[in-house]
Design a protein around this nucleic acid. Sequence first.
DNA 1: CAATACCGGTGCATTTAACGCACCGCTCAT
DNA 2: ATGAGCGGTGCGTTAAATGCACCGGTATTG
Lengths: 305, 305
Amino acid sequence: MRHLETFRLIAAVARAGSIRKAAEDANITASALNRRIARFEDEFGAPIFERLSRGVRLNPAGELVLQHFRAQQSDLQRLQSQVADLSGIRRGHVTIACSQALVPYFLPRQIAHYRRAHPGVTFSVNVRDREQAEHDLASFASDLALVFEPVHLVDFEVLHAVSQPVCAVLAEGHPLAAKTEVRLRDCLDHPHTAPSAKYGVRALLDAAAKKTARRVEPVVETESFELIRHYVLHEALVGFQIGIGLEAGHGTVARPIAVRDVPLGHLLLGQMKGRVLPVASRRFAQQVAAALEADEVQDHVPSGL
Amino acid sequence: MRHLETFRLIAAVARAGSIRKAAEDANITASALNRRIARFEDEFGAPIFERLSRGVRLNPAGELVLQHFRAQQSDLQRLQSQVADLSGIRRGHVTIACSQALVPYFLPRQIAHYRRAHPGVTFSVNVRDREQAEHDLASFASDLALVFEPVHLVDFEVLHAVSQPVCAVLAEGHPLAAKTEVRLRDCLDHPHTAPSAKYGVRALLDAAAKKTARRVEPVVETESFELIRHYVLHEALVGFQIGIGLEAGHGTVARPIAVRDVPLGHLLLGQMKGRVLPVASRRFAQQVAAALEADEVQDHVPSGL
DNA sequence: CAATACCGGTGCATTTAACGCACCGCTCAT
DNA sequence: ATGAGCGGTGCGTTAAATGCACCGGTATTG
């Protein structure tokens, strides 16, 4: 949309921290960009950038302008998607911020299923930790967030919530794999690998371990859930992850940890508080909510185990 | 703001019903305007006007676009007012749709009081019946509405509510003026004048009269509350109006009608549901709410009687 | 039924607004 | 001291928006 060009440039300047750098990124000259900004500030009635010696920076008014721009852009996209929807063929773009656990199995299936019905809808999937996810929503960078144990919950409007047990991820031959449910103390007595502190699974484990004599002392600590899933194939370790990110048939098995040891965590689907989502995003959220519900009603243990 | 020009023109075309007429209003040629619209529809991805033989008309998509534009414009004004506010001097513009009863005494006082503290804030006061007032809010034509007994209440978010008794308006010498409270039957037994059916006072009177043997049969029926107030000075009639629109000292007195005869009506201060108001409007609404509260706590009878 | 008055749309010349280039003064790191 | 990087400005140039004349089509009217 042509009329938002100035806002796009303002955002670019804010990002680059200097008019010249932003101009280069946008393939225009610094003078043209400078004038655009000056003109906007004039029309707007107040400066939106602080002029520093080494560049520019948004002032509080500028922050508000940028937020207005993002809201406006989001609303326009919603509108376009809505118009496309009432013309019959559903079009649009869904942006979703999610925890790592959703990446391997759950989300690909959900997206493929949705796209089978609505091939005109495209997707962006951004892996974010639970703190970043909420920031993504607030800055309109994502329409939806699907995160495990979010932290802040201001700006986060819960659309659906399901409980998820923490599971032990084990190679098929591992001694603990014999049981259908494992105890936390047994896991911690074995060498184990766990996600780093900013992830919900680790937070639950740490909190639960405090009530026991044992501590979570990972042999391998990582930010990558994928590494955990694959590493247990190479060394007889106990990994940890929530059920939705796990599946049998890759040489590993998952065994839920007893709820009396580690409480159930919560997987939340949410959007920015108060925002009206485009049709496509709203419908996809409904589908995801239904899928989560179906999974949960069935069992707390991931399907296929 | 330059970037909203196209939207302004679209709104003008929608209003005029034809591109040529709108072009004339906007002092540009029809071809320029035609091209602007064609360009917008192209960028937007869908037509927003139906082409008729005698002009054009917004299609459903166009209605949505126009609504988007109004929301955007309102948000921009809020933003500007907010920025002006954080720069110290409060600026802004407050638009308020109100019932006639508020016009003579209440609103002038409130506005003057507010402007004494914030001279940079300007006002638009639009007299609207209770149905139009809500439409004004929904179309962003007014920030606030102060109406007696609104009808629909979708899109209307109540900010404050006070009860108001229906009063008899009498010339000072009128026999009923001797009492401090009057009965409905006494009023209807006298010749009387009343607002027409679309006003809340009349609706309350009609509903109350149904429970009696008498009927509301005005000698003079009018849409002007001002006429009622002045007419009772010329002929010994009983007028009706809510207390907030009345004041002693002009040769008339007001006497509340017994609550057991006519139930209290409700004067509601409201805004469009979900909308974030500019600073000035929000603060003015707070002031008005406080003033209404003070009046009500005191007494249900208007001050000065 | 023909004349007419309006309507939206289009090709082309013209005007206007945005842009690129060169250059200024300034600050700060080296 | 000096040079690199920054925001801002005057001026010629380019591209986008506009105005004008005109087309084809459709209701209205005499």
